[in-house]
Amino acid sequence: MQTFDLEQNDLRTLNATLHAQKTNTNQTAWNIINPRGSHAIAVGLDAPIEVTVNGSTGYYCAGMNQQATVNVKGSVGPGVAENMMSGTVIIDGDASQYAGATGHGGLLVIKGNASSRCGISMKGIDIVVHGNIGHMSAFMAQSGTLVVCGDAGEALGDSLYEAQLFVRGSVKSLGADCIEKEMRPEHLAHLTELLTQAGSDAKPEEFTRYGSARQLYNFDVDNAGAY
C-alpha cells in the first residue's frame, strides 16, 4: 500500500504519480490522506490500481477514469467521475451535482445521496445511487443505466435517448418524453446484477423502469412544435 499525503505534497504530484502507473504496475494500492476538499483528485487514471481517498473531496474527483477503482471515504463535490470511461468509482458519502456526467463506461456507486443533474448526458456509464437524486437527473442520457434506490427529483430523464432508468422510490416529476415502462425479465436480471455489484440489498422487484417514449422532435419531426 502506497500512502500519499496531500498536506505534504501537491495535487499535481499526486496525479502525475498515479498517471505514471502502467497497466502492469506492482504498486496497485494507493491511499490518499488529507484530501481536505481538494479538486481534481485522482483524475485521468488509466491503470488497474485501487485508490482510496480518506476524506471528502471537491470538484471533479476521479474524472475521466479508466480501469482504476477509486473509493472516496467521504463526500464529493460537483462532477465526480465525469466522463468516466471504465473502472469503478465508489463514494461512501454524498455526491454533489452532475455526478457521472457524460460517462462512457464503468460503474459509479454513490452510497449516500446525489444532488441535481446526476448522470446528465450519460453515454454508457452505469450509476447506482443508494439514496436519492436531485432534479434534472439523466437529462439527455444516451445510454447506460441509472439505478436509484431512493427517490428522484423533478424532471427525471428529460429528453432521454436510450439510457435505462430504475427508481425504487418516488419520482417528483418526469421530464419531457420520459415515461414509465414495463419491467421485463431481462431488465430485472440487469438490475439485479447492478445492485449486487453496487453492494445494495434493495429488492429489484421494488423498482420501476423509466425510459424514452421516443416522441420528442429528434425522434419524430412532426412533434417539432410540441415542446
Binding site: 481536505r36 481538494s38 473531496t57 463535490g77 454533489s96 441535481s116
Partner: peptide
Amino acid sequence: DPIACKPAVMAETDQYVAFGSEYRALV
C-alpha cells in the same frame, strides 16, 4: 434558485452551523 447550479455546502455540529461554496472552506 430552482436550478441550483451555484454550489453550496452546509455543516452543522453542536457548536456551529457553517456555510461554504465548497467543502474546502469548512475543513
